[in-house]
Deep mutational scan, measured.
Amino acid sequence: YQDQEQRILKFLEELGEGKATTAHDLSGKLGTPKKEINRVLYSLAKKGKLQKEAGTPPLWKIAVS
């Protein structure tokens, strides 16, 4: 689980600052079920590491501290 968090954070960091992506996109790029990706995304957002942008589907990006 920790491993997934690292992979997602790394992927988003590599996208570049301010760039956002969807759970669907992450799921495809990382070869992980979207349900699992979503769980990790919401967990990271709760920890303040990610920012969720409203929309359908929601967009995710690295939180700027």
Rank of each mutant, 00 (worst) to 15 (best):
Y1D: 12
A63L: 04
G16V: 02
L9W: 02
K29N: 11
E36L: 15
Q4L: 15
R39S: 10
G31V: 06
L50V: 15
K29C: 11
Q2L: 12
K61P: 01
E17P: 11
A63Y: 07
S27Q: 07
K19N: 10
K29Q: 11
L12E: 01
H24M: 15
L30C: 05
R7D: 05
G31A: 12
T56L: 09
A23N: 02
A54C: 13
K46V: 07
G18F: 05
D25L: 11
L30V: 05
I62E: 03
E14G: 13
G48M: 03
L12Q: 00
L44P: 00
W60P: 01
K46R: 12
G28P: 04
E36D: 12
L15M: 15
F11G: 04
K49F: 09
L41V: 02
Y1S: 12
W60N: 01
E5P: 03
E36T: 15
S43I: 12
A45D: 07
I37G: 00
E13C: 06
V40G: 08
G18C: 06
L9P: 01
H24L: 02
E36R: 13
K34T: 12
G28D: 10
L44M: 15
E17H: 12
K46M: 10
E5C: 09
I37W: 00
L59R: 14
V64G: 13
P57W: 02
K61M: 07
L59Q: 09
S65Q: 00
P58N: 07
Q4D: 09
E14W: 05
E13K: 11
A20Y: 11
K34S: 09
L44H: 00
K29S: 12
W60G: 02
V64R: 09
I37D: 01
A20H: 12
T32A: 13
K29P: 04
K47G: 08
P57N: 04
K19A: 15
P58T: 13
Y1N: 15
A20E: 06
L44G: 01
R39F: 06
P57D: 04
I37V: 15
G18N: 10
L9F: 06
V64C: 15
L44D: 01
G31D: 09
K52M: 12
Q4K: 12
T22V: 01
W60Q: 02
E5R: 03
R39N: 09
I62R: 09
L26P: 00
I37H: 01
G48H: 03
S43E: 13
K52G: 02
L26G: 00
L9R: 02
A63E: 06
K34L: 12
V40K: 06
G28V: 15
E14K: 14
T21K: 03
G28T: 12
R7I: 11
